[in-house]
Design a protein around this nucleic acid. Structure first.
Length: 352
DNA sequence: AATTCGGGGTA
DNA sequence: TACCCAGAATT
């Protein structure tokens, strides 16, 4: 079976019209590939347009602050992608004279670029016969060619890559790679694939053996970790007390309110005791509080968040410190924050 | 080789 | 709910 020719022809007819398919500029391809990591095309599209509009070339990205990059990225998730892009842009300016590399060998050395992204850029931008292996490719190959190792395993990755390498050629390898992925996204879908009108109906291992809903084999996932985040939201006329998260945990380097993490949701009295220790609230001020609870689900964690809002009855002067920053009301919306914080801000009318 | 890094669409 | 998306870095 001439798999390459058949799926490439299918792609020519059925492909979606997407902005990054109108260019071979490695910078734009890079941006699109990073944004689309673990992200659906429909979700990433608006982010791509905003990103290349804000940072039209690698130089513009390198000149920006990390804050500005994260601001554009806000809400997309996996924020290390944005920080790695910023790092790599600066490296390209310094070490590659501002010319974004397009060879697999060089790309793979860059931060945030792994096997998949290096193969994607190299095949699309410089016709290198490097097969990409993403979730779509694993699914398509598992079904058609009968791979039965679980998703995410080293075995399935190596097996599928080797198989795809036997099909890819140095004539338009980028189109071949994109064709397999597009076929997986539009036709050989995870649920309700279009088997009856599929061009591989007669060859497909899964279809012939009635295993379409069994393949690819799922990876066994662990139960989510539960976490309890108690936030203190101090609002005055001049602004709010906030701080930046560290680089190890979730939401690395994003902004949030003073946080007390616990093994449960805490009471207002416990929060006040903690805030006095942290010197967050002036002791002589009487405050009015109310609470608002949110639940927020991540891939590996289930987060119970409780927001305590402190509205000083009289005018107080908030003290900034090394740990706490006073953010003026007008600047809140410019701050890179997680979806959880974003939802809270949007939901409550604290920014009046 | 397993875990961790978000957020949202889909059935 | 559970699944999974044009994956990479860390442990």
């Amino acid at each position: 079976m001439d798999f390459n020719r058949i799926i490439t022809e299918w792609y020519r007819i059925n492909k979606r019209d997407l902005p990054w398919r109108k260019t071979r500029n490695p910078y734009f391809i890079w941006v699109s590939e990073i944004i689309l990591q673990q992200t659906r095309v429909e979700q990433g599209l608006s982010y791509y347009l905003r990103f290349v509009d804000t940072f039209p070339d690698v130089s513009a990205l390198a000149k920006a602050s990390e804050q500005q990059v994260l601001e554009v990225w806000k809400g997309l998730g996996y924020y290390s992608r944005a920080r790695n892009m910023h790092f790599t842009a600066k490296q390209v300016i310094q070490e590659f004279n501002g010319v974004f590399p397009s060879s697999f060998q060089t790309l793979i050395t860059l931060k945030g670029i792994g096997q998949y992204t290096a193969a994607a850029i190299a095949s699309i931008c410089s016709d290198e016969a490097e097969p990409v292996v993403d979730g779509n490719v694993v699914r398509v190959f598992s079904r058609i060619f009968g791979f039965e190792s679980p998703v995410g395993s080293t075995k399935i990755f190596k097996g599928v890559r080797e198989k795809s390498k036997s099909f890819i050629t140095d004539t338009d390898p980028g189109t071949y790679n994109q064709a397999v992925m597009e076929f997986g996204a539009l036709f050989c879908k995870p649920k309700n694939p279009e088997c009856e009108r599929c061009i591989f109906k007669n060859e497909c291992y899964a279809f012939k053996n009635n295993l379409v809903d069994k393949l690819p084999l799922p990876k066994t996932d662990k139960p989510k970790r539960d976490r309890w985040l108690n936030y203190l939201v101090i609002v005055t006329s001049e602004g709010m007390v906030m701080h930046q998260r560290g680089i190890k945990d979730i939401w690395a380097s994003l902004w949030e309110f003073p946080l007390l993490e616990s093994d449960r949701l805490i009471t207002v009295n416990e929060l006040i005791e903690w805030s006095l220790n942290e010197e967050l609230l002036p002791t002589e001020i009487e405050i009015v509080q109310f609470e608002k609870d949110f639940q927020h689900i991540l891939t590996h964690q289930r987060i119970f968040a409780r927001f305590f809002i402190a509205l000083p009855k009289q005018e107080v002067i908030l003290q900034a410190s090394a740990k706490w920053t006073i953010i003026h009301k007008d600047s809140i919306s410019d701050l890179p924050v997680s979806r959880l914080i974003d939802k809270f801000i949007a939901d409550s009318s604290i920014i009046d």
